[in-house]
Computed example of a mutant assay.
Amino acid sequence: MLPQLRINAQDILPSKIKTGMSDDELVRMSNAVVIKATKSILARRDPVECTIRLFSATFYLSDDAPLSVGHAVGSAMVTHKIEKAEFRVLTQKKRLECTIGDMLTYGKRFVLFFNKCLNAFAGLTCLCLQNLRFAESDFVSNILVTCKQLNYLGFLNCDTKSWITLQVEHAQLSELSIVNCRFDMVELTWLPKLTCLAFEIWIAFNEPPLSFGYVPLLEVLSLSNVAYNRHKMVKLSTFLGETSVLDLKLGFKCEKIWVQPECLAGRQAHVFHQLRILRLFGIPEGYDLTWTMFFLEAAPSLEELYMTVVKWKWMRR
């Protein structure tokens, strides 16, 4: 009768020290539990009396676990009422451990999983992916086309073999997270329900590889970047275009502030007119606060201001 079902491979991952197992063996063991639990629970649900408000599965992209979970969830979507369904796909190696070869391998595994479990993906409302490199440049677009019910989509350390301009169009998507990903450009072409966006780390670019199209409901925006001396500072009024966010987070992951103070007038000031909450993280110690005063003057409706100051030891570049 439980309305919410969360099955997470990380929660049942045994201790490597206590068991003496290798990483591969531990992953296989936890995945096996996820498969068994998913099949068992979904098979015993009454499709008439017990609506599943949320089904969330977190599993590793290895062996036959993805296909087994995907087929079980896809079948359940046909016979049960599942209001929200989530897949959080993990890789055995963490982001900093992954080589390009690892990412390509993980990308091929995910494409196979995706193509063989289209019924499950078509009903997903949340999808979180990490450490994937796709050989086909249009595959990310295929995800958006197939997963029509998505409310949340998250990419961590993902890219395509050939850098592309990713045009994002989706009728239902309300939250999008793109962190440490490598795309030539991300164009938010048409996202009528998008309210929350996280776009972080574009170290290889002088300008943010992001453009705002039709995002009329965008309220919460998180931007973080590593900026070196050779990089240009960003004019937020130009970058944010026609948006008017309520909650803005800016992260500075190096010794240079990448936001440029501006003299705003007329239409430019509209960008910050509704700003209520401003969060500034990783401000270099001793930095000139002219740009901070710019925000205080540009946002007349500001209610909350958070700031953290750090001492960077990175070398200048």
Rank of each mutant, 00 (worst) to 15 (best):
K235T: 05
K235D: 09
E175D: 14
L210C: 08
E175F: 05
S222A: 07
V186N: 07
L156E: 11
E175I: 13
S222C: 04
S244R: 08
I178D: 00
P216A: 03
C181T: 00
L150W: 00
L221Y: 01
A204C: 13
I143H: 06
S222M: 05
L153W: 01
V220N: 11
N180H: 10
L156S: 15
E200T: 15
R182F: 04
V179S: 05
V234G: 03
T243A: 09
L144P: 03
S244W: 03
L176H: 02
T189V: 15
F199D: 02
N225R: 09
E200D: 15
A204T: 12
T189F: 09
S177D: 14
L176T: 00
T238Q: 15
V220K: 12
S211L: 07
E207L: 08
V186E: 02
Q149S: 14
W163P: 11
V226D: 02
V179P: 01
A204R: 12
N225K: 04
G154M: 07
D184R: 13
N157E: 10
S224G: 12
Y228N: 02
T243S: 14
S141H: 13
E207H: 13
E242P: 10
M185Q: 04
L173A: 04
L166C: 02
V186T: 02
S141D: 13
T243K: 02
I203A: 12
N229Y: 10
S162W: 07
T165F: 04
F212V: 06
L197G: 03
L218M: 06
P209H: 04
L153M: 12
W190G: 03
D159G: 04
P216C: 07
W163Y: 05
H170N: 14
V220T: 14
S211G: 08
V234L: 13
W190F: 15
A171D: 05
L236M: 12
A198N: 10
S162M: 14
I201Y: 05
A198I: 06
S224Q: 09
K235A: 05
A204E: 13
Y214E: 15
E207I: 10
P192G: 05
K193A: 03
P208W: 05
V226Y: 00
E242C: 12
N180S: 13
K161H: 12
Q149H: 10
V145H: 07
V226H: 04
L144C: 09
V179W: 03
C196K: 12
L173P: 00
E175C: 13
N206E: 11
G213A: 08
E219T: 09
S224D: 06
Y214M: 12
V145F: 03
N157H: 15
L156P: 03
I178E: 02
L240W: 04
G213S: 11
A227I: 07
H231I: 09
S237A: 15
K235E: 08
S224H: 10
A204M: 11
R230L: 15
V215P: 02
M233H: 08
L150E: 00
S237M: 09
N180R: 11
